[in-house]
Amino acid sequence: MSGHQLKINDQLEFMVSDRNTYRGAYQSQVRAITDEVLFLDVPRNKERIMIINTNEQLEFYRVTETTIWRYRGTVMTQGVSSRLMKIKQPLHIDKIQRRNFFRVPVNILTKFARADETKPMGEWEWEETRVRDLSGGGLCLINKTPLKAGLQLVIDLPLNQETLQLWGEVKRVGMECDDEGLFYVSGVEFLDIFPSDQDLVVQYVFAKQRSLLRKGNTPGGEEGTLNS
């Protein structure tokens, strides 16, 4: 495995999606490397510092033109005053396929139809939905009514100036609640997606992710349109 070694001044990226307080895109940089310790800038999102506990397991990424490298290690100390974080060596390193890796938060209003073998496709009933996050391999839908795992569906996915019509299968369903009440969260995996369509999805995802990291913004959303 070549190209995985970190170097001083390498730019690193942190995508935090499972912590409410620190959810967002963060950036860091390699400052020093020894056989025992990796020294990084404390990850930042604009002026916000990502606080990490000692002995916590941490993941971060280095994106090149051809590859994404994922690094996993244990935090030894994080000194806010010194603005450096120490991570224990050696790191666990993975090479990630660019096509399916990044899942970015979005806020795309659109519609889907449940596959119904008893009716022609033109008679399927379309329902409004919202895409909450997106990757090259699938997406997350937000609905007021539950979907069943195993359900196959077709969904309109507006990306910039083009709308893709994609097939998918519901793999998991959960239930959440916010100020507006109860809603259902469905993880959908794309089925038999054309490579050209997947390329468009991946390009959109990477453009979104790179824009968030460049601006240092917390991932938000980009609202699409409800097409007829």
Rank of each mutant, 00 (worst) to 15 (best):
154 V>M: 15
61 Y>C: 01
132 R>G: 10
59 E>S: 13
201 V>R: 00
47 E>I: 12
176 E>F: 06
152 Q>T: 13
193 I>T: 05
127 E>L: 15
85 M>Q: 04
214 R>M: 13
64 T>Y: 00
125 E>L: 08
73 G>F: 00
45 N>Q: 14
45 N>L: 11
113 A>C: 05
164 L>Q: 01
82 S>M: 11
99 R>S: 08
136 G>W: 01
217 N>F: 14
220 G>N: 13
75 V>G: 02
2 S>T: 09
4 H>Y: 11
171 K>H: 04
83 R>I: 04
206 F>I: 05
95 K>Q: 11
145 T>G: 04
147 L>E: 00
64 T>E: 05
94 D>N: 11
145 T>V: 10
219 P>F: 13
27 Q>G: 08
108 I>C: 07
167 W>F: 11
212 L>P: 05
78 Q>A: 01
194 F>P: 03
92 H>W: 06
71 Y>G: 09
104 V>N: 02
87 I>D: 03
54 T>Y: 01
74 T>N: 12
73 G>R: 06
204 Y>W: 14
39 F>L: 13
10 D>R: 08
146 P>T: 12
155 I>Y: 07
84 L>S: 06
6 L>V: 01
29 Q>A: 13
16 V>G: 02
159 L>V: 01
227 N>A: 15
13 E>D: 10
109 L>I: 10
173 V>W: 04
212 L>A: 12
176 E>Y: 04
217 N>I: 07
60 F>Y: 08
6 L>W: 01
110 T>S: 15
178 D>Q: 07
124 W>A: 05
226 L>S: 08
108 I>V: 14
166 L>H: 04
41 D>T: 10
74 T>C: 05
167 W>P: 02
155 I>V: 15
125 E>N: 04
227 N>V: 15
116 D>A: 09
131 V>S: 03
18 D>P: 06
65 E>N: 10
166 L>P: 00
21 T>K: 12
192 D>M: 11
142 I>F: 06
51 I>P: 02
50 M>R: 08
127 E>P: 00
187 G>I: 03
153 L>V: 12
7 K>E: 13
161 Q>D: 13
85 M>I: 15
219 P>K: 15
155 I>M: 15
201 V>I: 14
10 D>I: 04
78 Q>L: 02
217 N>S: 12
69 W>Q: 01
65 E>G: 03
151 L>F: 11
184 Y>D: 02
83 R>Y: 09
87 I>N: 06
62 R>V: 00
202 V>E: 12
137 G>N: 07
81 S>D: 07
57 Q>I: 05
160 N>V: 08
32 A>K: 12
6 L>I: 02
54 T>C: 03
160 N>T: 11
68 I>P: 00
5 Q>A: 15
136 G>E: 02
7 K>W: 02
23 R>A: 09
51 I>T: 09
28 S>N: 11
218 T>E: 15
18 D>Q: 14
130 R>F: 09
24 G>M: 04
146 P>D: 03
41 D>W: 03
213 L>E: 03
115 A>S: 08
71 Y>N: 10
28 S>W: 08
88 K>L: 09
101 F>L: 08
140 C>T: 04
154 V>N: 10
